[in-house]
C-alpha cells in the first residue's frame, strides 16, 4: 500500500520536525531569549489549528475558507469564560447558574462543543454545494460571525477582550511560558495522533475516497454528505481548541481572530507544509512563523514578500515543504 522508501523518509522528517519544535524553547532558555518560547508556542498553536483544517481540507477536499470562524469562537469562549470568572458575574442563570471558568479543561471542552454546534448548521448548508460555492459560502458564514463580533458590544466589540491572567490547568503553572508551551505541544501531539487515526480508519478512507471520486463512493453505498459533515465538525472542534489556546497565549481575543485573513493564513499553513500530510501543518506553521519573524525583522512590509513567496510556492513548488523534501505524495 505504501512506498516504503518515501514513507520512511517522510517519517524521518516528521520526527525531526517534532523534535526541533520541542527543542526550540529549551534552546531559547539556554540562549536567554525567552521571546523564542512564545514563537515556539505560536508555532504549536497555529499547527494545531491547521491540523484541524487539514481534516476537512486535506482528507476531505473541503476547501473551507471560513475556519477562522471556529478559531475565533474558541478564542472568544476562552475570553468570555475567563472574564466572567474574573468578575464573578454569572454568564447565565437558567437552567443552572454558570459563572464562567478559568480552568483550561472546561474552556477547551466548551470551545470544542461550541465550535461543533456552530459547524453543524454551517456545514449542513455549505455541504449542499461544492467547488467555488463551498469556498465562498464558508467565507461568507465566517464573515457573518466576524461582523457579529464587531457589532455586539457586550464583549468588547471591535476592541476585543483581554484575559487578565492566563487560565489555569490542574497541576501546571500556565504563567510559566515553558509549561504553557509543553501543554500546547501535548495537545498538538494528541491532535496529530487523532489525525493519523482518522486518516487510517474506515471513516477516513471513505472521506478520502469522497475527495477523489464522489460517484464511486456513492456507488458503493456510502453517502458523502454525512461523512463530510462529521469531518467538518471534527475539524471545527480542533481549530476551535487551537483558538482557545491562542487567546490564552496572547491573553487577548479580538475580531481579527475571526477575520478572513486568518482563514486564508490557515490554508496557507497547510499548503506551505504539504496538503493532506500528517505533519504538513506543523511544517507550514514553523515556516510561517519563521517567515513572519525573519521578514518582520528586516522590513515592515514583510507581507509583500510573504505574498511573493506564497505565489512562488503555489506556482512552482506544489506539494509544499514536505513534498519538496520527502518526494511526491503517496497517492491521491
Amino acid at each position: 500500500m505504501r512506498d516504503g522508501q518515501a514513507m520512511s523518509r517522510e517519517t524521518l522528517i516528521n520526527i525531526l520536525l517534532a523534535a526541533a519544535l520541542l527543542a526550540l524553547p529549551f534552546v531559547a532558555i539556554a540562549m536567554e531569549e525567552p521571546f523564542y518560547i512564545t514563537l515556539a508556542t505560536r508555532m504549536a498553536i497555529l499547527a494545531l489549528a491547521a491540523v484541524g483544517l487539514n481534516i476537512a481540507l486535506g482528507l476531505g477536499g473541503l476547501i473551507s475558507f471560513g475556519h477562522a470562524a471556529f478559531f475565533g469562537i474558541g478564542g472568544y469562549v476562552a475570553g468570555i469564560f475567563a472574564s466572567h470568572a474574573f468578575n464573578m458575574e454569572p454568564m447565565f442563570s437558567a437552567p443552572f447558574e454558570f459563572s464562567g471558568s478559568d480552568q483550561m479543561p472546561v474552556i477547551w471542552l466548551a470551545a470544542m462543543l461550541v465550535s461543533v454546534f456552530v459547524a453543524i448548521p454551517i456545514g449542513a448548508i455549505s455541504l449542499r454545494t461544492s467547488g467555488v460555492y463551498f469556498i465562498m459560502i464558508t467565507l461568507a458564514f465566517a464573515q457573518m460571525i466576524y461582523y457579529f463580533a464587531i457589532s455586539w458590544p457586550a464583549y468588547g466589540g471591535e476592541d476585543g477582550l483581554s484575559i487578565i491572567t492566563r487560565n489555569g490547568f490542574p497541576g501546571v503553572n500556565t504563567a510559566n511560558p515553558l509549561s504553557f508551551f509543553l501543554l500546547c505541544y501535548g495537545v498538538l501531539a494528541v491532535a496529530l495522533l487523532m489525525f493519523w487515526l482518522i486518516q487510517n480508519s474506515r471513516f477516513g478512507a471513505a472521506l478520502q475516497a469522497g475527495r477523489q471520486n464522489e460517484q464511486r463512493l456513492a456507488a458503493v453505498g456510502i453517502a458523502p454528505f454525512r461523512i463530510r459533515l462529521v469531518a467538518f465538525a471534527i475539524s471545527a472542534a480542533i481549530t476551535g481548541l487551537a483558538g482557545a489556546l491562542f487567546a490564552d497565549l496572547n491573553r487577548f481575543v479580538s475580531p481579527s481572530m475571526l477575520s478572513w485573513h486568518m482563514s486564508g493564513e490557515l490554508i496557507v499553513l497547510i499548503i506551505l507544509g504539504g496538503t493532506a500530510r500528517l505533519f504538513g501543518p506543523v511544517a507550514g506553521a514553523v515556516l510561517f512563523v519563521l517567515f513572519e519573524f525573519a521578514l518582520g525583522g528586516i522590513t515592515e512590509h514583510w507581507q509583500f514578500f510573504l505574498g511573493l513567496i506564497l505565489l512562488g510556492v503555489v506556482l512552482f513548488a506544489r506539494g509544499g515543504l514536505i513534498g519538496l523534501v520527502a518526494g511526491k505524495a503517496r497517492h491521491g
Binding site: G264, I267, G307, L308, L310
Partner: peptide
C-alpha cells in the same frame, strides 16, 4: 485551492 492561494498571495502583494 491553488487559485484561492495564488490570488490570496496577490492580495498581500497589492495591499502591502
Amino acid at each position: 485551492l491553488d487559485q484561492v492561494l495564488a490570488t490570496f498571495a496577490l492580495i498581500l502583494i497589492f495591499s502591502e
